[in-house]
Simulated assay, not measured.
Amino acid sequence: MDDAVYKHINIVGTSTQSVEGAIEGAVAKAAETVKNISWFEVVDIRGHIDNGKVTRYQVGVKLGFKLD
């Protein structure tokens, strides 16, 4: 069995619809340029409020991937 090396990055996804949408959008965008993404961890959740209504969800996501 070979030893592996992993790296992680922190990104922020946003969505006007949901926390899940913010996570999925962040992962999809990162996957366009980062290979071998294998896990995510939500580090923080926040959002924007306008006139007493939540208008945007912002989710800090840590992504882990195996280095070649």
Rank of each mutant, 00 (worst) to 15 (best):
D44W: 09
S15D: 11
V59S: 00
S15K: 04
V43D: 10
Y6N: 06
V59W: 00
F65S: 15
S18I: 13
R46V: 05
N36W: 10
T55K: 08
R56S: 01
G64N: 11
V59C: 01
V42T: 09
D50H: 09
G13T: 01
V34T: 15
Y57Q: 10
Q58S: 12
S18F: 10
N36F: 13
G64V: 08
Q58T: 05
K53S: 02
A31N: 11
N10Q: 08
K7G: 02
E41W: 01
K7M: 02
V59I: 05
D50W: 06
V12T: 15
L67R: 12
I45Y: 07
V59K: 00
G52R: 02
I11M: 02
Q58P: 00
V54M: 14
S38F: 12
A31F: 02
L63C: 13
S38Y: 11
K66F: 13
F40D: 04
K29Q: 12
S38M: 12
V61M: 01
K35W: 12
V54Q: 11
Q58K: 10
K35M: 10
F65K: 15
N36C: 10
N36V: 10
V5E: 10
R46Y: 13
L67F: 06
E20M: 02
E41T: 08
D2H: 08
S38D: 14
N51P: 00
V43K: 14
T14L: 03
V34Q: 07
S38E: 15
G13I: 00
E32R: 08
I11C: 01
V12C: 03
G25Y: 05
G21S: 09
K53D: 03
R46Q: 13
V43P: 01
D44R: 09
V27Q: 05
E32K: 13
E20G: 11
I45H: 09
I37G: 07
I23E: 02
G64P: 03
E24W: 04
A22G: 11
N51G: 04
V54I: 14
D2M: 07
D50R: 14
T33W: 07
A4C: 06
I11P: 00
V12G: 04
Y57M: 03
L63R: 08
G60P: 01
A26M: 04
V42C: 05
V61D: 00
S38G: 12
S18H: 06
L67C: 14
V5H: 11
D3Q: 06
K7S: 12
V19D: 05
D50K: 13
V43N: 09
S18C: 12
T14G: 02
K29A: 06
V43H: 01
D68F: 11
K66Y: 14
I23T: 04
D2R: 07
L67Y: 11
A22Y: 07
V61T: 02
K62R: 14
H48Q: 14
I23V: 15
